[in-house]
Amino acid sequence: MILHLSHELTGYLDGTLTAEEASGVAAHLAECTECRVALDDLRAVRSLLRTVPPILPHPAALSRTLSRIALVETRRTVPRWLIAVATMAAGIGLLLQLRVPTAPPQSTRVSPLWYFQQQAEFAAAHPMADVTLTSYLSSALPYETFPEWPAAQKR
């Protein structure tokens, strides 16, 4: 059974094989009619592809592209590092704004927001800890904050 050539034929046709490979293909072609026919077909296909006439772009295509590139350059006038620094500064500022400890109001009446904010900060500092729940339960409830609660009314 004769093993026919495969992509070696394309390499042989295009002259990209080494001298040793090319001589091996030539020796096979001398004995194999089927591979000779295949080589002729491949040569014909290559010739057909070369009949494709050169394709020309639209005359204005280059100028349109260059105009867009000029816009790219304009957009690049603000350095990227400056954008990055500004974004980082804004992020840090926002973070600081959120982390500023809120002092208890000066009035004797504690605001509900302050109470729950303290609990939330404590829970965030000790996540998944029993002490969080204990702290929450053991802290004195701000009855004065919720005067409508029954416990506060008993006082």
């Binding site: 394309t10 295009d14 296909v45 057909l48 592809l49």
Partner: peptide, 16 residues
């Protein structure tokens, strides 16, 4: 490149 080109030319041979 060579193997892709070979397969492509074989397909083109049949179609053309």
């Amino acid at each position: 490149v060579r193997s892709r080109l070979h397969r492509a030319r074989l397909a083109l041979r049949e179609w053309l």
